[in-house]
Design a protein around this nucleic acid. Structure first.
Lengths: 142, 142
DNA sequence: CATCGTGCTTCCAGCGATTGGAAGGTCAAG
DNA sequence: CTTGACCTTCCAATCGCTGGAAGCACGATG
C-alpha cells in the first residue's frame, strides 16, 4: 500500500507519471498527450525509460489543468504558460489572452442561449401528448 | 447562366447535389457526408453516377439544416426525422427529444457561464499594464 | 528464482461534425 | 476539341481527449 518505488514525492529527482497525475489532477494519458503536442517539454527519464517529473513540472501540469478548467484552448495555454514563466511579462498581455477567451465564451453562450430560447418557445407550444401535431416538427419542416 | 443540365428543379426526376445544396442550405460535401453516415438514405443516381434529389429529399435536407441550427445532434436528428415521417407519432415523443436537448444546452450554458464569470472576476482584478503582477496567472498557478 | 500484479512504454484508432484537398469522370457550351 | 463547371471517390485534418493492445520494468510474495 505504500509507494511502489518508495519515493512518492521526494529526493530521487522526480516522481513517475502516475504520481504526477495524482498530484496535478491531469491523468497520465493526458500528460503524455500534452508532451506529444509540445504543450509541456519532454520529461526526463529513468535509465529504464520511465518519465520523471520534478515538483516544478507538476506545478505546470496543475496550471494547465486549471486553465483548461476555465476553457482556455491548448494554444492559449501555451501562451499563458510562457507568460507565467516570463518574469518580465506585462499583465496587459495576459489580460489580452483572457479577454480573447472571454469573447469566445460570450459568443458561444449567446449562440447556445439563442438555441435554447427558440427551442423553449417551440416546446412550450407543444402539447406533449398522444396527438401527432407538433409545432417543433412543424417549425423544423419549415 | 441558365441551368447547365437544363432542369434546375423540375420534371427530370430530381436535381443534382449542387442544386439540392443551394435549395436546402446544406452544402454538397455535407450532403454526401450525411448520406455516408446514414442520416439520409442513399440518393438515386443518373446513368453516369450523379446523385439526384427529389423535392421531398431536398425538404428533408432543409429539415436537417434547421435542426442542426438548433444544435440537435445527428443522432437526435435521426430520431426527429423518423418522427416527422411517422404520421402517427405522438407529440410527447418529439417533446422528449427536444427537452433532452434543452437540458444539454442548459448544462453547457451553465458551464460556459461559470467559466466566463470566474474569468471576468480575475480579469477585472488585473491592471492590464506593464507590470508583471497578474491575478489571472496567480490564480492559475494556484 | 519464478511469478504475480501493477505501472510504465509505444502506437494506433475513434469520438462529432465538419472541412479541405487530390485525382479523376461528365456534361454542355464555345 | 477544349474549356470550365460540375460531379465522383477517398483520404486527411481539425480539437481535446480517451481507449485499447502489446510489451517492458518493478517490487513483493510464494
Amino acid at each position: 500500500m505504500t509507494d511502489k518505488a518508495g519515493n512518492g514525492g521526494a529526493a530521487t529527482g522526480g516522481v513517475t507519471i502516475g504520481d504526477a497525475a495524482k498530484a496535478s489532477g491531469v491523468n497520465a494519458k493526458l500528460i503524455r498527450y500534452y508532451e506529444s503536442i509540445g504543450l509541456i517539454p519532454e520529461a526526463g527519464r529513468t535509465a529504464s525509460g520511465y518519465r520523471l517529473y520534478s515538483p516544478a513540472e507538476v506545478h505546470v501540469l496543475r496550471f494547465v489543468r486549471r486553465a483548461r478548467g476555465l476553457g482556455f484552448s491548448i494554444e492559449q495555454i501555451q501562451t499563458l504558460v510562457g507568460l507565467w514563466r516570463d518574469r518580465d511579462r506585462s499583465s496587459a498581455e495576459v489580460k489580452r489572452v483572457a479577454q480573447a477567451h472571454m469573447d469566445e465564451l460570450e459568443a458561444k453562450i449567446a449562440e447556445l442561449t439563442a438555441m435554447r430560447d427558440s427551442l423553449r418557445r417551440l416546446a412550450e407550444a407543444c402539447h406533449g401528448d398522444d396527438r401527432p401535431d407538433c409545432p417543433i416538427l412543424h417549425d423544423l419542416a419549415g
